[in-house]
Design a binder for these strands. Structure first.
Lengths: 196, 196
DNA sequence: CTTCAATGCAAGTACTTACTTACATCGTTA
DNA sequence: TAACGATGTAAGTAAGTACTTGCATTGAAG
């Protein structure tokens, strides 16, 4: 019973939805059960406690590491094209896992440590990969380097700030097209700044 | 009685501290009173409810709009110098009000609407001022423009992402120097990208 | 000395929340 | 048919939380 219509999965998805909206503390087990269309007791029979329910959600709907694969396989050594692909992939991946990310981002003193670690992995990984990429490109004289790590951070934090502003603060989600436009423009900008 | 040692102010400051740390929902009135060194009843005598206490905190420890003043008075029309000053001022201002910002950022279904509006003002204002600045600079051929608004957003979101990563996610605050270095490097980067 | 406002203290109310227990229902499978 | 596992229902527990009430204490002002 691991398909999306099973009782367990209905509970996990309902919990993610509600907690992303109202925070871990602000979401009650009664609400979660109601949203999943089952009795509250069933929630405790399946997961024991509220914390374990959230942990199960993180284990089941896991971050895919498509970023690592991307850097290994899909980059072609052409700055604009590569940065565009990186940025697009980052936003796609973050959007898919946005609710789990938001829950960790809002935080709570009752949140299991596991949750924070999982949410921090994605950005950390990107920083490492991007720094290595810039160094490799500069060795081919395709990028002008001053401080690879800070340049990578600039690109990363720009995308991170964009993601948060679009998905966390905004009442209604930003339309796809305007985020795409932003990505293109910002990649153009970085390409101009980094090209020798 | 409006000095920092008055009972009211001790309560306001304690509330801000605790709520920034544990969220609005996760902070109890008993804790706040204890941290302020007064009885819980005194809290209710002064502010009536928990919500009104937070509203009072926002009214008292208000965002200064030093950004507007900065754009009107201190910019000299030299791209690198101006962007550096803007970025530094932004981070200084955000840092001073970081706890109020964090409380709004973490959110809760019980937070007064006023709180969200106040927290959103600062970034919105910066976007407007920065866009106008870029347009004005391009008319003097000091900046190469493609889409002023998206270019301003790129700069803004980069700084926003940096601020959040440094002050929200990190367990211990980032050392001053490394943020300063980031600011310099990122401004250099943008200057190179925008200079004709 | 008296008055009065601010505060502390003790107790309590009304409500919510995570979590439990006991029992009934129902569909599947042996 | 009989047994069983998953679920619903009803009721309850223990703890916490925002907020209230009544009374005693104190310290400064008149």
């Amino acid at each position: 019973m691991t398909n999306i219509h099973s009782t367990s999965d209905k509970l996990l998805l309902a919990a993610i939805d509600l907690m992303a909206d109202k925070g871990y503390d602000g979401t009650t087990t009664k609400e979660i059960a109601a949203a999943a269309g089952v009795n509250e007791v069933t929630l405790f029979r399946h997961f024991g406690t509220k914390q374990k329910l959230l942990e199960a959600a993180y284990n089941r709907y896991h971050y895919a590491d498509e970023m690592t694969k991307l850097f290994k396989e899909s980059l072609i050594g052409e700055l604009y094209t590569d940065l565009l692909l990186i940025s697009q992939t980052y936003h796609r991946s973050m959007k898919r896992n946005r609710k789990l990310f938001i829950i960790a981002h809002r935080g709570s003193s009752n949140l299991p440590e596991e949750v924070y670690q999982e949410a921090g992995r994605h950005p950390q990984q990107l920083k490492k990969l991007l720094t290595e990429y810039l160094i490799a490109m500069s060795e081919q004289d395709k990028v002008v380097l001053s401080n690879a790590e800070l340049q990578a951070l600039s690109f990363m934090w720009m995308n991170h700030g964009a993601f948060i502003s679009c998905h966390l603060n905004a009442k209604e989600p930003i339309p796809e097209t305007s985020l795409d436009e932003f990505i293109e423009e910002s990649v153009r900008l970085f390409t101009r700044a980094l090209t020798p």
